[in-house]
Amino acid sequence: MAVQVRVPTILRSYTGGSKVVEGVGDTLAALFIDIDSRFPGLRGRLIADAGELHRFVNIYVNDEDVRFLGGLDAKIADGDNVTILPAVAGGCAVMPATSGV
């Protein structure tokens, strides 16, 4: 058994168009490394240069925002569901660190 990851439309160019991909790993960080081995480039859209989750990508494990579960250290187990959603954000002010995912 593995973890199912729901991929948003904008990132499906990395998954050959697939809406859901499977991966394995004990933590979110490990899961992304596993997935990136089959879908190269996907991880780079989720993780910023500093090695942290990109500020404007929302990731959920079983409907919980991983920001409240330890971010990339969030524990995951077989059968969990991971959802990726690009944040919907913007505004009239220029915010720092808003380069695209």
């Binding site: 439309t9 919907v88 954000a89 913007g90 009239c92 220029v94 695209g100």
Partner: peptide, 25 residues
Amino acid sequence: VIYHSHTATEAYPSRTDISLAWEPG
């Protein structure tokens, strides 16, 4: 449609809006 308001500036996408617009459709 994805909408938002600007409350002191014109109704034109800011640089932030543009860099965070992920829905081409």
